[in-house]
């Protein structure tokens, strides 16, 4: 008897992506460049976060035709984004057979109180988190993979740094607590005690932890890995740069060999212009995408 959609199959899928780079792509041609560069998966969307930020307006799930076009072009997994809380967008993405759904703060939220109940889906979900409590709440709703949120579409890595450091720092703190203290920690984190205990025992999240948001250079990617991420999402950083194919390859190599500064130096040469970017401290609090999610 074959069973699909189990937690093991969903979480196990993310385990296969570890040490890799997942790239945002908006056309089949970009998906081809990403696969050729060695991306472990692509995120199919209509506009990269930098353009979403520039254009404003409401940002939604991509057209299924556009996602199908990308699926037809590559053999690596294809992910797609649904709005926070928009369970019907998620149903549609599952129906067209995407490999992973990102319930993403980069799109305009559809529900300001609830996230999607991800346990009822066969397709696995990745969700963003700025801290451990948020990560564990997403896992309790069924997320099979977590990505720390940066500030998408800025090319400024500082928020990604803050959030991965926060999550991993909070986990480290949990591992020093006794069983009594864990109850209080669960209350403070607003997360189920079972997940808090499991995380404390493992010394890491029970699912794979990638990082995302603002990664624009090979050195950024390697820094996220050295800080303790299992892998990296790169959104606008590749296809908003001067030479996407070269930058994509360089980011893949720097992620695989994140501890080897000489190799990172070698792949960082002659990549052309990085995305111009926006410094996060020039944005108002209302412009911060990372604040979306509850």
């Amino acid at each position: 008897m074959n069973t699909t959609g189990t937690p093991l199959v969903k979480r196990g899928m993310a385990e296969q992506l570890k040490g890799g780079v997942i790239m945002d792509v908006v056309t089949p041609e970009q998906a081809r460049i990403a696969e050729d560069a060695g991306a472990v998966a692509v995120m199919a969307l209509e506009r990269v976060p930098a353009d979403i930020r520039r254009d404003g307006g409401v940002s939604r799930m991509s057209d299924p035709d556009m996602i199908d076009g990308i699926k037809a072009e590559v053999t690596i997994p294809v992910m797609a984004k649904a709005r926070i809380g928009h369970f019907v967008e998620a149903q549609v993405l599952q129906a067209i057979g995407v490999d992973y759904i990102d319930e993403s703060e980069v799109l305009t939220p559809a529900d300001y109180a609830h996230h999607i109940d991800k346990t009822v889906f066969t397709v696995p979900f990745v969700c963003g988190a700025t801290n451990l409590g948020e990560a564990l709440r997403r896992i309790s709703e069924g997320a099979a993979m977590i990505r720390s949120k940066g500030e998408a579409g800025t090319g400024d890595v500082s928020q990604a740094t803050t959030h991965i450091r926060t999550i991993l720092g909070q986990i480290k703190k949990l591992t020093t607590m006794d069983s009594t203290e864990l109850f209080e920690a669960a209350k403070e984190l607003r997360a189920p005690i079972e997940l808090v205990r499991e995380t404390a025992e493992l010394g890491r999240l029970p699912v794979v932890l990638f990082t995302a948001g603002g990664v624009a250079t090979p050195a950024d990617a390697a820094m996220m890995m050295q800080l303790g991420a299992d892998g990296v999402f790169i959104g606008s950083g590749i296809f908003k740069s001067g030479d996407p194919a070269a930058r994509a390859r360089a980011c893949v190599e720097a992620t695989a060999y994140y501890q080897d500064a000489e190799r990172i130096a070698k792949v960082s040469r002659g990549l052309g212009e990085a995305m111009v970017g926006i410094a996060v401290d020039s944005l108002g609090a209302g412009d911060l995408l990372a604040n979306r999610g509850w």
């Binding site: 008897m1 074959n2 699909t4 189990t6 199959v9 699926k71 997994p77 599952q94 066969t122 696995p124």
Partner: peptide, 26 residues
């Protein structure tokens, strides 16, 4: 076997090993 929604778990008889719980992911 198809895309991720078709990934599955199943018990298998592996010659020389016995019954193994197989996790098949894409």
């Amino acid at each position: 076997f198809g895309s991720q929604v078709h990934s599955f778990e199943a018990d298998l008889d592996v010659a020389g090993v016995g019954t193994v719980h197989g996790v098949f992911i894409r």
